[in-house]
């Protein structure tokens, strides 16, 4: 059983929902990331989404765009991100790590090389924002054979037919994008999310994480009532941006936001 699957099963048994934080690897420098990952686990994170910085993050709002810029300025490449996961694994063999990013750095490395590197670093899942299932029929098996989950987005605009197709290509969990927009945008509508999650449940047999627009403990709590997981990104990256000049303050600041969300979700 994969770490992601085991994680959701265990949460299910204890009646809790997954808290899934996102940070961009290497933001604002390469030394900060692994300690922040550990701090997030201590604050109640169940799965970590680690962003691979890209020069042209088309699906991201200004907060994560800036994070990518800081990470690239500090010289973070896909190889560095894999090395960070390997380092994280020395102290944590339990928490699933999902790499989230754009396709081109993976194209540049090569799919075989990348899939092998994921296995040896201890990466559990990969979410490539600009890789829809139609374009990766020959790529899916390479990850499946190696036990690396490919996670896909489902959007408010996704048709039922596509949800079924995405459900077949995906493993681990589905990431439901709660609103039409970029990361960090507007506020989500919980009732709308609830009804969409219901639809997705009927069409695909995977846990559903919901992200985009989760800003605080209240929105995390509301979403946790209807989904299997709550993804939070920009709200954490904001903490990193605010403390970019005094990096020792980053881990506690990020952990504090997460701890609030955790206790609101578990109430």
């Amino acid at each position: 059983m994969s770490r992601i699957q085991a994680c959701f099963e265990q949460l299910n048994t204890s009646g809790r929902k997954a808290l899934i934080p996102y940070i961009t690897a290497g933001d604002p420098n390469r030394e900060v990331t692994v300690p922040v990952m550990h701090a997030m686990v201590e604050a109640g994170a169940d799965i970590i989404e680690l962003g691979v910085p890209f020069s042209d993050p088309m699906a991201d709002g200004p907060v994560i765009q800036k994070a990518c810029e800081r990470a690239l300025e500090s010289g973070t490449s896909l190889r560095d991100v894999l090395a960070m996961v390997a380092e994280f694994r020395r102290r944590d063999d339990r928490t699933p790590v999902v790499l989230m990013g754009y396709l081109n750095p993976v194209e540049a490395m090569g799919y075989e090389t990348f899939a092998d590197a994921c296995v040896s670093a201890g990466v559990d899942g990969v979410l490539l924002v600009d890789l829809p299932p139609e374009e990766c029929e020959d790529i899916v098996p390479r990850f499946r054979q190696r036990g690396v989950d490919l996670i896909f987005l489902v959007a408010p605009t996704t048709t039922d037919e596509r949800i079924r197709r995405i459900g077949e290509a995906a493993s681990g969990y589905l990431y439901y994008v709660s609103l039409k927009g970029v990361t960090g945008a507007a506020t989500l509508n919980v009732e709308e999310v609830a009804s969409r999650v219901e639809t997705i449940r009927n069409l695909a047999q995977l846990p559903i994480g919901v992200g985009f627009g989760i800003k605080d403990a209240a929105s995390a709590r509301a979403v946790s009532r209807v989904a299997d997981g709550v993804v939070v990104g920009s709200a954490l990256v904001n903490q990193i941006a605010a403390n970019a000049q005094r990096t020792e303050a980053i881990a506690p600041a990020v952990a504090a936001v997460l701890a609030d969300m955790r206790s609101a979700m578990d109430e």
């Binding site: 088309m58 699906a59 396709l103 924002v129 600009d130 890789l131 829809p132 139609e134 374009e135 896909f152 987005l153 489902v154 959007a155 408010p156 605009t157 996704t158 048709t159 596509r162 995405i166 994008v177 039409k180 927009g181």
Partner: peptide, 9 residues
């Protein structure tokens, strides 16, 4: 067609 899911439809 390499875009995020929201634009596929």
């Amino acid at each position: 067609r390499f875009v995020s899911e929201t634009l596929m439809a």
